[in-house]
């Protein structure tokens, strides 16, 4: 299936292009928009954006693959990203990762069988003072312990 922006997103895209003196600068915001609409950045998305921004698909591909937050494949419904970087480690992030692995029954980099959750570990998220912490989709959850994790996942499971 070919990818195109919804009319509403196309309008947003046109707005983004106007913010820069050169069209291709709108690539990062356009990719965010496409990911919001499509869930991940497929080959069709890349070709479509290359056409809109008048760059080669190779240029789009280079950009997409450089950044970790653009999904190169579909992922679980909720993306759990646990910070396992320097300062979070000092306050027990290894145990947080272990607990999530056990609780979800997956390894880091995997999705649960029902496709609800995808577990990743990431580098510093700018939340070191409230470690251990994780990001789920767009939200931060800080000062985690097992009880708190149970509660957060329960809420996401019953939504």
């Amino acid at each position: 299936m070919n990818f195109t922006f919804t009319p509403e997103n196309k309008k947003k895209f046109d707005e983004y292009v106007k913010r820069y003196p050169q069209k291709r600068a709108a690539l990062l915001p356009a990719l965010w928009l496409a990911q919001e609409q499509n869930g991940w950045i497929s080959g069709e998305v890349m070709e479509y954006l290359a056409g809109l921004l008048e760059v080669t698909p190779a240029f789009v591909y280079e950009t997409v693959t450089f950044y970790t937050m653009y999904n190169k494949k579909p992922i679980g419904k909720h993306h759990i990203q646990v910070c396992n970087s320097v300062c979070c480690w000092l306050r027990g992030s290894e145990q947080t990762v272990d607990y999530l692995k056990r609780k979800l029954g997956v390894n880091v980099g995997e999705s649960t069988a029902d496709g609800r959750f995808h577990l990743s570990t990431v580098e510093c998220l700018g939340s070191c003072g409230s470690a251990p912490m994780m990001q789920i989709d767009n939200d931060y959850f800080e000062n985690l312990d097992e009880e708190k994790i149970d509660q957060i996942l329960n809420e996401l499971n019953t939504e």
Partner: peptide, 12 residues
């Protein structure tokens, strides 16, 4: 003056 935000995508 116009101010716009430009979002990165995960690269220190």
């Amino acid at each position: 003056l116009d101010i716009y935000q430009h979002r990165g995508a995960g690269a220190y």
